[in-house]
Nucleic acid binder design. Structure first.
Ligand code: ZN
Ligand code: ZN
Ligand code: ZN
Ligand code: ZN
Lengths: 160, 160
DNA sequence: AATGCAATGTTATAACATTGCATTTGTGCC
DNA sequence: GGCACAAATGCAATGTTATAACATTGCATT
């Protein structure tokens, strides 16, 4: 008998990120981890929320397909995705976003707009090298692939 | 009648930050705001916690002197202090720290150590100008005086 | 069949933060 | 002093975010 659990893909029209999901799945497998159905569904929801999404909103949407889902369901999936470098958490907003980059050899800047809460992920080699040099001089060492910054987005800059 | 509320100063020996508190009070007054007793006590606790403190730990300590204190008591004080530039919130850790700087014409870097959770506030003109230039090129504008970064502190770097 | 193990399910609770409204306190004015 | 007004505080309830603790499932190995 073929599975007929109504999957999240079928609820919404599109699926332009099937490719990205497949790539993510492959890269997990390459590291010996597995992008299970739940994790894949969470990642897909992240892909559909370019400006980030809150854990409990995620939970609400996951519940449409999996009524039994609970907070640990989504937090575990998010932890996994973050470990695998497929997602990031924006601390100050309790917001989760999919990573748009292939790898994090260069750390990313996350520009969080204080007006509209939009999140933009930016990779800037020059800034990052200046940063890690300064930190090194002060005896610190850059550790995470994420640097959060409050910055007005272009839209909000032009409005005001 | 003179006030004789047991104030927090008298509980602990020292008071080396009376100066800083007085300066803070003056700068509030200069802006037409007032550093009331509660706010001053919270700020003092922040001064005594160089690596940051959680809101509910703060609450517990405030309660020693003011048994009636409740979450809004400390969150309101923290909001005030942050507005006045006297404190910062470290989003990813839900940690509050006193600001060590006289003013925020230059935004600060907050180095949050992922090992020991210590927080160091650093002002680096060169990094910050590189940063705001790059952001401007991308159409964004640096907005807040706070940039959080995960970076191992010198102590944790040397240990491992 | 028994064991091991990763993932998931389930329930409860911890930890963090805000809202709404009543009361008190401070401040300028008469 | 007495009054009006705004700012600050007290207080209870609630909202939001995250984890702890324990049970179960499914599949691979012995
Ligand atoms: Zn990324
Ligand atoms: Zn914006
Ligand atoms: Zn500061
Ligand atoms: Zn450290």
């Amino acid at each position: 008998m073929t599975a007929s659990i109504p999957d999240i893909q079928s609820v919404q029209p599109c699926g332009a990120n099937t490719e990205a999901l497949d790539r993510a799945e492959a890269s997990c497998r390459a590291r010996g981890a597995s992008l299970t159905a739940i994790r894949r569904e969470v990642l897909e929801l992240l892909y559909r929320s370019p400006t980030g999404v809150k854990a409990y909103d995620l939970l609400a949407r996951i519940k449409e397909a999996r009524p039994g889902a609970s907070p640990p369901t989504v937090y575990r999936a998010l932890d996994f995705l973050i470990e695998q470098g497929l997602a990031h958490k924006i601390g100050r907003m309790n917001l989760f976003v999919a990573c748009r980059h292939a790898s994090h050899q260069i750390p990313s800047l996350f520009l969080v707009c204080p007006k509209c809460s939009g999140v933009t992920e930016l990779q800037e080699q020059s800034v990052m090298s200046a940063l890690s040099t300064s930190l090194a001089e002060a005896g610190h060492r850059l550790e995470s692939p994420e640097v959060e910054i409050s910055a007005l987005c272009p839209k909000c800059v032009s409005v005001q």
